[in-house]
Design a protein around this nucleic acid. Structure first.
Lengths: 183, 183, 183, 183
DNA sequence: TCGTAAGCGAGACGGTACGTCCCGTCTTGAA
DNA sequence: TTCAAGACGGGACGTACCGTCTCGCTTACGA
């Protein structure tokens, strides 16, 4: 089952999440703006975290396609650029940052957020499979760490340091990581 | 210039921050638990973010020493271990995670948090200076990126993926990054 | 013509009325406890007052027999005792008090309650007819006032003053009223 | 201590009590109409019953003077008329009926209501003292019962039967009771 | 005997009020 | 002058019932 206006609710939730951040997001606000009664929200989601979690899962605003440029370096650079763009451009950046930040300290939300990003990050796997097929990658390479290094550096730069993640930065980290792996 | 019980206030703030997370931390709670009137808190700090920011700056719970093992790899491994420990062990982990998470979406807090960690991370500079003196490092290496790669990967692993950052992982990323740089 | 589980519904209604009082009695509570859907209750009774009114009318818990002791004084004393017992003993007392109290301010309910008690009080008429036949009573005596005096005094004593209506009190008022009439 | 707008609050409470009856009286309504925040009401009174109880005690709308006509019959008739008027005229009637009805089932309120009316009824005592001084009354007469008989009959007539308590009725019951006593 | 209509359950919904927590502002009085 | 004490208007919380509605399922009765 699902509430009748689920789509409006999710849209409103993410919009307001992007606009005001997680902790200034209120259930009453979502209710009012999505033309639904507060009680209806509580009927379906036990908490703000659960609502946001569900909205995220249904969200299509945070999708990103996986590149296929023909080389591992090209693919990773493109992937990193897209991660950077995801974290930087509006509204995905606001949503992603708010959700990621809130997920620390809201285990319920964390699970969903984690699942959400894991789902998206899982799609980078073909990149490595193609790279392995091309002989660019040792078969025992630790793939998750590669993505963690790249994505972590971008996160730190963008969210924590508040600096832009321009293409020079992106190229730089990708090449650094690649050199680190390929040997 | 400062409230008389500033130390209790800061202690309480960080304790409660660690216990309940940023957004369940309340001014009233801090007031009550530190034996101070709510008014006093508002007199000195305009917002919860400002209070937390100040408390963090004064905090000694989040210090970490900078290693000097004689080799760049040893130093970085040790540094990474300490970062991992800082994010993992109690109460520093709870405080750091809560503060970092909250800083996204609270620019006021972000500045302080950023300054705080920048201050601590600035201390890793001697590591690189010693490495350069030993000839282990090209003089034009982008130092911040190195730290961002390492720290970012740890953050992602610990906070986002919810996985432990054990010594194998730490060694692995340090070596990967080192190989990436040294070429 | 009538809901299938009418009897359960009425029983539950009166039980809960006695237990919790009129305004903490809820339709939802009655529905749940009588194993009926809320909708069913609304299908048959437009309001809580109407439900209670109907339940009262069907109630057999509040019956009382009319005495025939052979003298007016005996009959009235016995009648007064029974009224006192009706208002005092459980569950009739709780039901009666709750219903009477609620009927002030719920005209819809008031009508039924009034009818209900009028019906019961109408049975005291033979008392007076027998008394008149025995010559104990002038034929133009205002009978309703006699009952009002007696019943009113008991109500005041029991419900308002919260005092018991013991047999001494009952005898006292009956004799006072009788002396007032008989001259 | 007392809330700053206590008088408005009490006035509003009684006005709304008279208008809508006890159980449609809402705290939020009182708050809004008396220009006070809901929280303020909860700060001072733990429940609706307590608020109404307090408002009643402070009320001056329900006062009545005690007559002194020179004879017991005159005094009692006048007293009964005033009781009837108190229960009949607006707004005192609505307030009194609502409060008395609600007090059954709200022990907290009952205490206050009882105290309130006891206080007012206590003033009839001089009537009897004067009557005793004039020799109209045996010294051991049970005074409370006299008042209970009269007031109870009026209550029953007015509230329960929904009939008016006109001067004929009032005279009738007073004379009946008087005859009952004086013998 | 079987169709059909009344009765019902399930449950979503908009809505009102509840009583609570905390916010941030303000005033007052004592040290 | 600084601070405690604490009243206040306010916003949102999460909950309980309200009364209405739609949707299918039973049940039972009368054609």
């Amino acid at each position: 089952m699902a509430p009748r206006k689920q789509q409006q609710i999710f849209d409103t939730t993410l919009t307001m999440l992007a606009e005001t951040g997680y902790d200034r997001l209120t259930i009453e606000g979502v209710a009012e703006r999505s033309g639904v009664n507060k009680t209806t929200l509580y009927r379906w989601w036990p908490s703000k975290a659960a609502l946001v979690a569900n909205a995220l899962i249904e969200a299509r605003a945070l999708e990103f396609a996986v590149p296929d440029t023909g080389s591992l370096e090209g693919d990773l650079t493109e992937l990193a650029s897209r991660i950077a763009a995801l974290l930087t451009t509006s509204p995905s950046g606001d949503i992603a940052v708010a959700a990621l930040a809130a997920s620390a300290g809201h285990p319920e939300l964390a699970t969903s957020v984690r699942g959400f990003f894991a789902d998206r990050l899982a799609r980078e796997r073909p990149i490595f499979e193609r790279a392995a097929a091309r002989g660019e990658l040792a078969p025992d390479t630790d793939l998750m760490t590669i993505v963690d290094l790249i994505a972590g550096a971008i996160w730190l730069r963008v969210v924590f340091r508040g600096l832009p993640a321009d293409s020079a930065f992106v190229s730089h980290i990708v090449q650094t990581v690649l050199r680190g792996i390929c040997r």
